[in-house]
C-alpha cells in the first residue's frame, strides 16, 4: 500500500475543493442571477473540461505552464521552479479540470432560489452580504455540498491530466490513480488490488455521504 500516494491524493482533493468552491460560489451565483450577452458562451467554456479528453486539457496546461509561455516564465521567476511536474502545478490543473463539477451544481442551486426571496431580503433591509450569508448560502448549501463532493471524488479518480502535467513523481505528483497504473506495470498486482479497493471504498463513502446529507437537508427545507 502506497500511503504517500494516498495522502497526496487526499490532500490534492481537499485543496482543490478549498480553492475551487469559493470561486465556484462566486461564479455560480453570478451566472445564476445575471444575464448578459455572451453568457451561453461563458457557460459553455466553463463546461468544456467535462467533454474534452483529459489529454487535450493536459496538453494545453503543459503549453501554458511550460517555460515558453509568459505564465510559465512569470511563475518560474517568482518561485524559482517550474509549475509543471510539481504539486502546485497539479493543484492548478486539478482546479481547472474540476470547474464544471463545482460550478454547475452551485449555479443550479442559486438558480433554484426564488428571486422573490432576494426581493424580500432587500425589503427587510438586509445588506447584500447578509442576504448572501443568511439566505442564499444556506438555501444553496445542498448544491454547494454536491459540488464539494463531486470535485473531491473526481479529483481522487483523475488520471489523464495528472499523468500529463504531473509526471508520476513519488510524494509530489504521484496520486493513487497513477500509483495503481504504476503498480500494474511493475507486475505488482497485490498492491494494485489493495489500492484499487481502497480508492473504491473512499469514493463510495464520499458519494454515499453526500446523498445522505443532501437528502436530510432537502427534507428539512421542504
Amino acid at each position: 500500500m502506497d500511503w504517500e500516494a494516498l495522502w497526496l491524493t487526499l490532500k490534492l482533493a481537499g485543496l482543490t475543493v478549498l480553492v475551487l468552491i469559493p470561486l465556484a460560489i462566486a461564479v455560480g451565483r453570478w451566472l445564476a442571477v445575471t444575464s448578459f450577452r455572451g453568457k451561453a458562451v461563458t457557460e459553455a467554456a466553463l463546461a468544456l473540461p467535462l467533454v474534452l479528453p483529459p489529454t487535450v486539457v493536459g496538453f494545453y496546461l503543459l503549453v501554458a505552464f511550460g517555460s515558453g509561455s509568459w505564465f510559465g516564465q512569470t511563475y518560474q521567476s517568482l518561485f524559482g521552479h517550474s509549475l509543471v511536474f510539481t504539486f502546485e502545478g497539479l493543484l492548478v490543473a486539478s482546479v481547472i479540470v474540476n470547474i464544471p463539477f463545482a460550478v454547475q451544481p452551485v449555479q443550479r442551486a442559486f438558480e433554484a432560489i426564488s428571486p422573490d426571496l432576494r426581493d424580500a431580503a432587500a425589503t427587510c433591509g438586509m445588506s447584500w452580504w447578509r442576504m448572501v450569508w443568511r439566505i442564499e448560502l444556506p438555501l444553496a448549501w445542498p448544491g454547494i455540498l454536491t459540488g464539494v463532493v463531486l470535485t473531491f471524488a473526481h479529483t481522487l479518480g483523475e488520471f489523464g491530466v495528472v499523468l500529463m502535467v504531473g509526471g508520476s513523481i513519488p510524494g509530489e505528483t504521484k496520486t493513487v490513480a497513477i500509483a495503481i497504473y504504476d503498480r500494474v506495470q511493475a507486475f505488482d498486482d497485490v498492491a494494485a488490488a489493495k489500492m484499487s479497493a481502497l480508492l473504491l471504498a473512499i469514493s463510495l463513502v464520499t458519494i454515499a455521504l453526500s446523498y445522505l446529507l443532501t437528502q436530510r437537508l432537502g427534507r428539512r427545507y421542504a
Partner: peptide
Amino acid sequence: LKLTFGSSGNFARQIEQGAPF
C-alpha cells in the same frame, strides 16, 4: 531516492519542459 519509471522518450520531453528531475 524517488524512482519513477517510464518510457525514455517521454522523460526526455518532460525534462525539456522543465521537470524537476
